[in-house]
Design a binder for these strands. Structure first.
Lengths: 245, 245
DNA sequence: GGTGGATTTTGGTCGGACCATATGGTACTT
DNA sequence: AAGTACCATATGGTCCGACCAAAATCCACC
């Protein structure tokens, strides 16, 4: 079966499909079936344009499309490079959209609520299934967090790191990707927030309570500690919204 | 402040940025700031090309980009329509990437495991917070499910509907979007799966046990019932994979 | 006032041309 | 001989003008 000659016609399209979409689909197929390996370079635009019998514009639009989906990486003067998307990239791409959904407080709350849901579940999981080295990592992260009290920027980092350990315990690469996304999306909403010194202490205490419950292998307490911690955090995010209707 | 004249130069770009990206960013800004309302039509390509002083190709690539992100909807011969993305579209977009990550059994398992995690949490939530009408909806969904036993396609529908109710109970629009995504992603992997009549009965029994635990306001039992149900379901998905390494 | 065809709009495509950047080879310098 | 500056080539990025096809609009006609 020829894969050229299939898209010919010079501007005369029977169906309502775009040429660039057809080219894009063809390229995707080639990537998925392994014709193009990870890291390999895509054929040149002038190459593809001849191979598929379409104009360069069509090829370019197809390439733009693939690039937007994260399947390839384009640099100027460079042939596009095939990038098999991992979970982080996938979540990243959607993040771009989620930004539009967080314009009002309701949108941010919806997202934050899913975070509470996730982390409550993770806390339960950790309490039930965490291995010894997971617990050690948690403790190390907590120590780092305590030492960062007072240093806002460093505290936020160690804060995120502590939560990150929880996302990593189940061993499913999707969870860390989700955590990364949460941090990116929600950070903008409290980065602008000035806070007193007591806040760090409160947050640290929250982390401590969570770890204690996990160490005690008590899912219910871990859940409750996590929920309290995050609800308190939300109160601050919430306060950054002007109209408190 | 002028928003034209800002992208001029005929092929002479100082930085390594694409013209189309600049145009795309400008359009996004216009949509976000409310300059273009939901449902409104984007200016014509020939309009934008004059307004921003770029070629039509650049405008088109920008439009392709926005369309890929789900911010606009393009039809042939029609001006693009602004579509404020909702959570479903956002999750949908990422779904098309996730498809590439489910080529092997490990990828599918990772995804399925997050589903177990989600639904276990949702079962707990329902047991703790479901209101009376939520419970009635669950029972109605379960009844529909029971009546569909034996009719494979209808059973799958009512099966999904039963789980959908759980996703909808917390009242956060993100959860139903996630459920929709799960159904779309995972369905392909068991649609091809032939099954005996006993399977429906087993799955229905699972749903029944879940609902009973929820009605009894017993989160632990609800969790356990849900986990058993989904782990059993996984055994079937798993069996569809040829190489059982 | 409704209806159907002609006109206008508008997206989709093409082809050729030029510019900007990255790469690699070559000739020149040291 | 080694290093460097420079030029040719490959390749992506952009522009222009044109044409086609589908949708939208207008208008004459009934």
């Amino acid at each position: 079966m020829d894969q050229s000659e299939k898209l010919h016609g010079h501007g005369t399209v029977g169906a309502g499909s775009r040429r660039s979409d057809a080219v894009a689909a063809e390229l995707v197929r080639m990537i998925e079936t392994g014709g193009l390996q990870e890291g390999e370079r895509l054929p040149a635009e002038r190459d593809l344009m001849q191979r598929y019998g379409v104009s360069r514009a069509a090829v370019r639009e197809a390439i733009v499309s693939l690039a937007n989906r994260g399947l390839i990486e384009t640099r100027l003067g460079h042939r596009p490079i095939v990038r098999k998307p991992d979970y982080e990239i996938a979540v990243d791409k959607v993040g771009n959209l989620v930004g539009h959904l967080m314009v009002d407080r309701k949108g941010v709350w919806n997202l934050f609520e899913t975070r509470i849901f996730m982390e409550v579940g993770l806390a339960r999981w950790a309490a039930k299934h965490a291995r010894r080295d997971d617990l050690e990592e948690l403790r190390a992260a907590l120590d780092g967090n305590r030492e960062a009290i007072g240093n806002s920027v460093l505290f936020d980092e160690t804060d995120a790191a502590f939560h990150a350990v929880l996302y990593q315990i189940p061993g499913n690469p999707i969870y860390p990707a989700i955590h990364k996304a949460y941090v990116e999306w929600l950070t903008q909403h409290w980065r602008s927030m000035k806070r007193g010194a007591g806040i760090d202490q409160m947050n640290y205490a929250g982390h401590e309570a969570i770890l204690e419950a996990i160490l005690a292998r008590d899912p219910d307490n871990a859940e409750e500690a996590m929920r309290r911690h995050l609800v308190a955090a939300w109160e601050f995010v919430r306060s950054t919204f002007p109209s408190d209707n």
